[in-house]
Write a protein that binds this DNA or RNA. Structure first.
Length: 565
RNA sequence: UGGGGCGUCGCCAAGCGGUAAGGCACCGGAUUUUGAUUCCGGCAUUCCCAGGUUCGAACCCUGGCGCCCCAGCCA
């Protein structure tokens, strides 16, 4: 017993998340299946950027391998040259590393297996299990039948092995035009599972492949490449999303016909997050049609977008752990992700003050030209992070929202004749409100209580505390505030005919160009998170330059006042 | 109406015949120079429905109902 408790490995194992896949793997390992070997893989197609949905799969595959002492391969499923690019390969690898995972030398490409796949196709032809079909795509579709009616055999289905071998070789040699012929598996046109109705194995594509160049003009379909790729790599547990469950019998069929190592496939439910989109097609469209400023737009659910937004990799890993892995279609609320981000950032982010909607305040009883350096912790709960000095002077900016002309009783901030504490500074009282011709409040004249620096006020209670920035020392910055990208929980899947583009939230990005931050923020490096006290977490954006710093709002602080209102 | 998958709190999710974990959200309340954090407390007599088996069922059986996926020479 005591040994168990003292063994950190066992302790963590007990605390590790359990789900049906991890349970299966644990059982397999316990029963010494696959000689106690565990190999998983993350198999992205290099045709776009990774998003938070991929992160779920990544954390599962790499996570379980790490937990159980197995390996997780990175394999690019690059069987469709017309959609894939090297740009995406590099981006995917960078995202994976950023997320905190490493695959060592286990980096593979389905395209590396093209020759083997071709040989296996020949083997199936020789065994009478595959044939070259001259039907057009349209004709194949016609003969496939429907969900409730069986399909019918292609007139080319009974070609001789010799003819098939010859034709397939000539397909490879480039004798035929795109679409002229395909190689199909000979299974069963009446199979209730559509995937088994003589699926296409190879198509002719005179296209340049990002890795194999012009070596091939026939390319295997995903279904003829994926299972065998797993087999070649001796993957023990082939984890994928639910929609591939119907393909499992086909993969198993190929593996069995070929007599090669048989990985087992397990399917889990893909991640759905509210008020955003996860489909690559939609993500591509948002970028291509400039509805966002790129794959790394901070509003995008892509890993590059979230990174730019300031989401820590750890928060994403925590999120993936928290949502679990199951088989029921699930919609996760953004608040779960945001909570993970807050939890992480609250612990690590240095605090700073910044005013994003400035209102000028003049402290009429504070000497002109005087500057005090006020002492404040960098993190109130973590003294070891050190302290910072904040310049204070006669003219400051406060947040417009922290002043109300006619405040309700529960409003603890500033109002005419009211008092409030300046964070880490004095208590001030609003004596005069200056308005412009339009009647808008443009400036406040206040007095300060000299005895309240680091001390409680005498004879009264002042509950409110507001943040501020000294005008003379303020750093002018731009702040970008973000809201959900879409107005509806499930864009593009709602009522008839509504384009998901029309469901974009026009107010998803708000750019505030006239913001002021405490001078220490001048040293902010791109991507590092700060908490702007009382507002939220922010990080410097890559659009920053020598002239102006730009900050992205990562996530707001919880705001029970906002709720109360 | 062919095949595959799924239905446990508003959203996720444990549970695997012995009498409903946990997280998010929500609602209190305490501490607080961030209306933050932290901290306490509340939040499914009930597990899609209906029968049945059993001393005992969310878990087993039967029958319904509902939702998702599949008819790309995409992955």
């Amino acid at each position: 017993m005591s040994n168990e408790k003292n063994n950190p490995a066992e302790q963590t194992a007990a605390e590790q998340p359990r789900d049906f896949i991890r349970n299966i793997i644990a059982e397999d390992l316990a029963s010494n299946k696959n000689d106690g070997r565990l190999a998983t893989r993350f198999p992205p197609e290099p045709n776009g950027y990774l998003h938070i949905g991929h992160a779920k799969s990544i954390c599962l595959n790499f996570g379980v391998a790490a937990e159980q002492g197995g390996v997780c391969h990175l394999r690019f499923d690059d069987t469709n040259p017309v959609k894939e690019e090297n740009e995406f390969i590099d981006a995917i690898k960078a995202d994976l590393h950023w997320l905190g995972f490493d695959w060592g030398d286990n980096e593979f490409f389905a395209s590396n297996y093209f020759e083997q796949l071709y040989q296996w196709a020949m083997q199936l032809i020789s065994a009478g299990k595959a044939y070259v079909d001259d039907l057009s795509g349209e004709e194949i579709r016609q003969l496939r039948g429907t969900l409730s009616e069986p399909g019918s055999n292609s007139p080319y289905r009974e070609r001789s092995v010799a003819e098939n071998l010859d034709l397939f070789e000539r397909m490879r040699n480039g004798e035929f035009a795109d679409g002229a012929k395909v190689l199909r598996a000979k299974i069963d046109m009446a199979a209730p599972n559509m995937n088994l109705r003589d699926p296409v194995m190879y198509r002719i594509l005179h296209a340049h492949h990002h890795r194999t160049g012009d070596k091939w003009c026939i390319y295997p379909m995903y279904d003829f490449a994926h299972g065998q790729s797993d087999s070649i790599e001796k993957i023990t547990h082939s984890i994928c999303t639910l929609e591939f469950a119907d393909h499992r019998p086909l993969y198993d069929w190929f593996i069995q016909q070929l007599g090669i190592f048989a990985p087992h496939q397990y399917e889990f439910a893909r991640l759905n997050l509210g008020y955003t989109v996860m489909s690559k097609r939609k993500l591509h469209q948002l970028v291509a049609d400039k509805h966002v400023c790129g794959w790394d737009d901070p509003r995008m659910p892509t890993l590059v977008g979230m990174r730019r937004r300031g989401y820590p990799a750890q928060a994403i890993r925590t999120f993936c752990e928290r949502i679990g892995v199951g088989k029921s279609d699930s919609w996760i609320d953004m608040s779960v992700l945001e909570d993970c981000v807050r939890e992480q950032l609250n612990e690590t982010a240095p605090r700073a003050m910044a005013v994003i909607n400035p209102l000028k305040v003049v402290l009429t009883d504070y000497p002109e030209g005087k500057v005090e350096m006020l002492d404040a912790p960098i993190h109130p709960q973590q003294p070891e992070m050190g302290r910072r000095q904040i310049p204070f002077s006669r003219e400051i900016y406060i947040e417009r929202d922290d002043f109300m002309m006619d405040p309700p009783k529960k409003f603890f901030r500033l109002g005419p004749e009211r008092e409030v504490r300046l964070r880490y500074g004095y208590i001030i009282k609003c004596n005069e409100v200056i308005r412009n011709d339009a009647g808008e409040v443009v400036e406040l004249r206040c007095s300060h209580d000299n005895a309240t620096l680091g001390a409680a006020p005498q004879g009264r209670k002042v509950k409110g505390i507001i943040h501020w920035v000294s005008q003379a020392h303020a750093l002018a910055v731009e702040v970008r505030q973000y809201d959900r990208l879409f107005n509806v929980a499930s864009p593009g899947t709602n009522k008839d005919g509504v384009d998901f583009i029309d469901e974009l939230n026009p107010g998803s990005r708000q750019i505030l160009t006239c913001c002021y931050a405490e001078p220490a923020l001048a040293d902010a490096t791109i991507g590092t998170a700060y908490q702007f006290e009382r507002l939220g977490y922010y990080c410097a954006d890559c659009d920053s330059d020598d002239k102006k710093l730009v900050f992205n709002q990562t996530v707001t602080l919880r705001d029970s006042w906002q709720k109360q209102k």
